[in-house]
């Protein structure tokens, strides 16, 4: 089963293009994500890494191109059917985006809202026992079970990001997109979160894509790397192929200026 999964990409992005006004930020971006692997997106600021992720997530609308999840093109869907079709994709943010006044457990439960019916989901008071147990298991998976009833606002950055990953698990995500998940964290917390993302791919068979700013994190925790330069894919292959020359080219001053 697993071998089969890895042959067929769970998410396939084809010929993605996007411009803001006259400025073209993505040209013809193609890639696919497979279960059981971590893909690192590398590139300088403005290279188009975050825009790519946002297009996949529907936070930005691409000018052209396709986003296929399990072979189904999400671009052709809209409204409720798109919301439902997108459910297996979860996102983790640089700014974490938990609700600080709610407990870690309540925040994790909120990941399941997409599959709860309207009336049963207006307040955390109505989160059922089964959902709470599932959320608790997710917190256990990320090592935050002992802080379940702590307000999210009282957690440290690294703890909060792990709770956000638990929220994605409670969403029953198959694809996890992480937009600079560790950029705001101190080095130790960043390592913990990267280890967690790596383990979720390799032990829970998730497809993980993470925008990273540090190539050395990619080398240690990712399986594949996609390097973007001025909105085009400059490199796509195993992280071992990230040579010094390539890294310099991706982050060169010229690339930033262009």
């Amino acid at each position: 089963m697993r071998a089969l999964d890895q042959d067929y990409p769970i998410l396939r992005v084809g010929s993605l293009a996007k411009s803001y006004g006259d400025r073209k930020v993505l040209h013809d971006v193609d890639f696919s994500l497979h279960r059981g692997e971590v893909v690192a997106f590398l590139g300088a600021n403005g290279s188009g890494k975050s825009t790519t992720l946002k297009c996949v997530m529907g936070l930005e609308t691409p000018d052209s191109g396709s986003v296929r999840l399990h072979g189904r093109d999400l671009q052709t869907l809209s409204g409720r059917s798109l919301r439902i079709a997108r459910r297996p994709i979860a996102m983790v943010f640089q700014k974490i985006h938990l609700v600080p006044r709610r407990t870690a457990l309540e925040n994790v439960c909120a990941g399941a809202l997409g599959r709860l019916s309207g009336s049963a989901s207006v307040s955390p008071l109505f989160f059922g026992r089964e959902l709470q147990e599932e959320a608790m298991a997710a917190l256990q998976r990320v090592g935050m079970a002992d802080r379940a009833h702590e307000l999210a606002g009282r957690l440290s950055g690294g703890q909060a990001q792990r709770v956000a990953v638990a929220r994605a698990l409670c969403q029953r995500a198959e694809v996890l997109l992480a937009d600079e998940p560790v950029s705001a964290l101190d080095p130790a917390a960043a390592e913990e979160v990267m280890i967690l993302l790596h383990d979720l791919a390799h032990e829970e068979n998730l497809a993980v894509a993470a925008v990273l700013h540090q190539p050395d994190l990619a080398l240690r925790y990712a399986d594949r790397a996609i390097g973007l330069l001025n909105g085009r894919i400059e490199y796509s292959g195993p992280v071992q192929g990230l040579t010094n020359g390539l890294r310099e080219r991706l982050y060169s001053a010229k690339a930033v200026a262009a």
Partner: peptide
Amino acid sequence: GPQQALGTAG
């Protein structure tokens, strides 16, 4: 942010 995060979660 949190509103957007829940929106992406469906």
